[in-house]
Design a protein around this nucleic acid. Structure first.
Length: 413
DNA sequence: CATGCCGGGAT
DNA sequence: ATCCCGGCATG
């Protein structure tokens, strides 16, 4: 499901949000947290454009660096292999997998779930252009270098004869001094291959690489690396890891405070396959600074505040649904589950759990009798509406419909 | 009476 | 389209 913002709504929303925070901070800090999270989200999404260009950049870089042969600096083959591994890890951790590169732009459709998968994932790239408020940021954001330019200027900088060790250094210096170029990255999933041989645990970015590693190191097949009886397959596994966490930790300029990001998981605690991220974390952190892995999850939170205002007539057929694999989800058009989790429960609220689904259920029941004759007027739901819940003094917290004296959209009965 | 919200007006 | 409000129905 798409969600778009009218800038108008956004403005009013945010301003209202602020007042809300003050008014309800006593009773509902939950709400405050949610608000914060949304702000963070906004910021994150705001960078989506930047990130995209960086993805391209990274891709380019990877191509370049992968052409660099490991110099004969190391003596033993094992050490040499270690370097390869290290280089591979560095490279892959710094760039997203070329396999999941972004193809040409597609119309936004998988907006709800797919973009969260990661920065360079196709759908995310395509969708980002449709974010009414992120598109202009691409142009206006002063900190964003123009993608092609930065890429070109960067290439000659790092590509020349850098020993494999230099990758680390160049990257580090890159991060320290070349700041404008590798700005931020969207969270992205990357496939890597981990050696399962005991006491090994090497991680390579390609299946071929890991196979070769196992073949040569563990299986003792020296020489022609072409031959493969498939035995290696038993000794490595494919893992997915979240690159964004790395990027997040690296880019010290991340404006998002981790504490805020932490508030989102309760809402969407299913960051798809990022489970596997944990085992690899140490691999990543070995090279990078420690990082807050909470950041990516922030992206999963779709801003739905006042969504009912943006799209009033939306009557979700299936209600909010969470697909088991977590790769996609859609959010109820009702904001309460996300934004007002705490509010209805507050002062005089008496339905304990009623959120989206239940409400919708009763709603459908109510609307069933068509009786085409008279009194189309609704039977006046017995539930408390915005006016009652928030009171006249907090009128700006009502849903729009209530403010306009229309049928309440927030507390449907 | 307070409340919910339809109908309709203003912008 | 968005916003507001008179006035009626309801409890």
């Amino acid at each position: 499901m798409t969600f778009t913002f009218q800038s108008e709504d956004l403005k009013r929303d945010s301003s209202r949000k602020m007042s809300q925070q003050h008014l309800f901070s006593l009773a509902m800090e939950e709400d405050v947290k949610t608000a914060d999270t949304k702000k963070a989200n906004r910021v994150l999404d705001h960078e989506k454009e930047n990130t995209r260009s960086i993805c391209l950049l990274e891709q380019k870089r990877k191509v370049v660096s992968s052409n660099i042969d490991v110099p004969p600096a190391r003596k033993s083959s094992e050490e040499l292999d270690m370097d390869k591994v290290t280089a591979a890890m560095v490279l892959t951790s710094l760039s997203t997998s070329p396999l999941v590169r972004s193809p040409p732009v597609r119309p936004n459709e998988g907006l709800s779930g797919s973009w969260k998968e990661g920065g360079c994932v196709p759908s995310s790239t395509s969708s980002s252009g449709y974010w009414s408020w992120s598109a202009p940021s691409d142009q206006s954001n002063p900190s964003t270098p123009s993608p092609p330019l930065s890429a070109d200027s960067f290439k000659p900088f790092r590509s020349p004869v850098q020993p494999d060790d230099g990758i680390d250094e160049s990257e580090a210096s890159n991060l320290l001094f070349d700041e404008p170029i590798p700005r931020k990255r969207k969270n992205s999933m990357k496939v890597m291959f981990k050696c399962l041989w005991k006491n090994c645990g090497k991680v390579l970015s390609t299946a071929a690489g890991i196979q070769k590693h196992i073949r040569t190191i563990h299986l003792g097949r020296v020489g022609d690396s072409d031959y493969s009886d498939g035995e290696e397959d038993f000794y490595y596994t494919e893992i997915k890891l979240n690159t964004d966490s790395v990027a997040e930790g690296l880019s010290s300029l991340a404006p998002v405070s981790p504490s805020q990001s932490l508030t989102s998981p309760p809402t969407f605690p299913i960051p798809d396959s990022s489970r596997t991220e944990t085992p690899c974390a140490k691999t990543e952190t070995k090279l990078m600074t420690p990082l807050s892995r909470s950041a990516p999850t922030t992206l999963y939170l779709v801003h739905t505040d006042h969504a009912y205002q943006a799209t009033p007539p939306v009557t979700i057929p299936g209600s909010a649904k969470f697909t088991p694999n977590g790769s996609s989800f859609s959010i109820s058009w009702q904001s309460p589950p996300v934004t007002f989790t705490g509010i209805p429960v507050s002062p005089t609220h008496h339905h304990p759990v009623s959120t989206g689904e239940q409400r919708q259920h009763s709603h459908t029941i109510l609307s069933s009798p068509p009786r085409g004759t008279v009194s189309l007027r609704k039977p006046r739901g017995e539930g408390k509406k915005c006016r009652k819940v928030y009171g006249m003094e907090n009128r700006d917290m009502w849903c729009t419909s209530c403010r306009w004296k229309k049928a309440c959209q927030r507390f449907i009965d």
